[in-house]
Simulated assay, not measured.
Amino acid sequence: MASSTRANRTQLFQKATQIVYGPLDKNLSEESARTWTPPDNPGAGGHRGRYLWTDAFGLVNFITLSKETSSPVYLTLAKRLAETVHSMLGRTRDGSARLPLATDAEPLKGGLRIGKMDAFGSDGDGQYHHYLTLWMFSLDRLALATQEIVYHRLAVQLAKAIHPHFVIRTRQDSPPARMVWKVSTDLKSVLVPSEGHLDAATGFVVYRLLQQTAEHFGDSSGVLESEIADYRELMGGSGKLHVSNDPLDLGMGLWMCHLFRDEEWARTLGDQSLDVARILLAETSSLMTRGASRRLAFREFGTCMGLRCYGTDEALEARVAAVVQFWEKFLDESTDEDLRPISLIMFASALIPGGELDAEDPTLISTSLMVD
């Protein structure tokens, strides 16, 4: 199998990343990296080449590459990607102004657009809570990887800014009642009033990571206490935290659980998710017996990534490897153009979720997406 060894995985990881972000390698000069601009063709696949989910994983993958190749140039590329996302998705679609509520001093106070191709409609642009929390995580990991606090502060700025627009209360002084899935680009209107299955739990996890990093930098301890309390209450509601049969949702749940795996809620959900993964990825399951045209690669890579983060036994790891191998031959020019960038970046994340655990400083857990 092409991706069976770490060296081969790294090679495939680099290849997938370069198809999306251009011909980059560890020999790229620092000077060139500092002036690099992420391409819009193919780019991350969204509006003007930026799509928040894909670029969030892309940023983390650059951090992983810096570890895998021992080249700091990838951290410079990660910083340039962050700057580009903020300048594109933190502004109106025509690029003429920052999003409402944002300022030059607080550029993320207006949130970040998803990067959908259409401005309006059922699949139009707006803001998703689960995309925004993933971007916060990515910025926070960049802060730890570079030891530059500015990226952490941007993540906290974004966290505090978007929270009241997704967490709904019956009165201003009442406990949180529910969350909403999608709001408008200007944060003023609810576009999808239903609640994302993992949104509260992901908020609980990511905001706590931001809090830990604040303590690591000695920067405003307790800055997100009220938001964390809201998410804790919301995720504790009856039926809120359950295993999903959707491959991407299942994988992101496992990823979320591995970050606080010693806590009872995470152990319970994580172990239940492993049971579902064994069924979902079984060689004879309805999903695994379908042809490629009836499957979505990036969603299955989410399962693979989550499993490798949380930890697999020999049988599950064999199934993860089989899924990755199945899709390798389809990740070329013939892949659906719209989904190609997200599929390639998630493929890389499934190959090497990356990251290390610093035993002396637990705030440095998961500099990338996984604890080895």
Rank of each mutant, 00 (worst) to 15 (best):
L89S: 10
T76E: 05
G126A: 07
A318I: 10
D249V: 10
P164R: 02
H216G: 00
L296V: 14
F62D: 05
R178V: 07
A102H: 10
A105Q: 14
T170N: 13
E68S: 06
S220E: 13
T170L: 11
T64Y: 05
P107I: 11
L154S: 06
L75Q: 11
S3W: 07
Q211N: 06
Y151I: 04
Q11N: 11
W255G: 13
F13M: 04
R232T: 15
Q14P: 02
D372M: 01
E148L: 02
W135E: 06
E83Y: 05
E356W: 04
E317W: 02
A350E: 02
I114K: 02
V60T: 15
E31V: 15
L269P: 03
A143N: 01
R232S: 14
D230L: 10
S70M: 12
S349P: 01
P42W: 07
M305Q: 14
V156A: 14
A359I: 15
G49I: 07
I168C: 04
H129E: 00
K67W: 03
G124Q: 09
L77E: 05
E300Y: 06
D313M: 03
L281S: 11
L89G: 08
R299P: 01
M117L: 14
L287N: 00
S96Y: 00
W36M: 06
K79W: 01
L259M: 13
L296Q: 15
G355R: 04
G124W: 10
L210Y: 11
G236R: 04
L241Y: 03
S293V: 14
S3E: 08
L139I: 12
T363D: 10
G46Y: 07
H165P: 00
H152N: 11
Q325T: 15
M346G: 00
T289M: 13
C257I: 02
A44L: 03
V183P: 01
L210P: 10
R141M: 03
E195K: 08
A359Q: 13
D25R: 12
T202F: 15
S286L: 09
H130N: 09
L52S: 06
V85C: 09
E68R: 02
S226K: 15
D94G: 08
E83P: 01
M136C: 15
D361E: 15
L209M: 09
G302W: 07
T10Q: 08
S238A: 14
D249S: 13
N8P: 03
N8S: 10
F204V: 00
E317I: 06
Y151E: 01
I19C: 02
L364D: 06
L75M: 11
E148A: 07
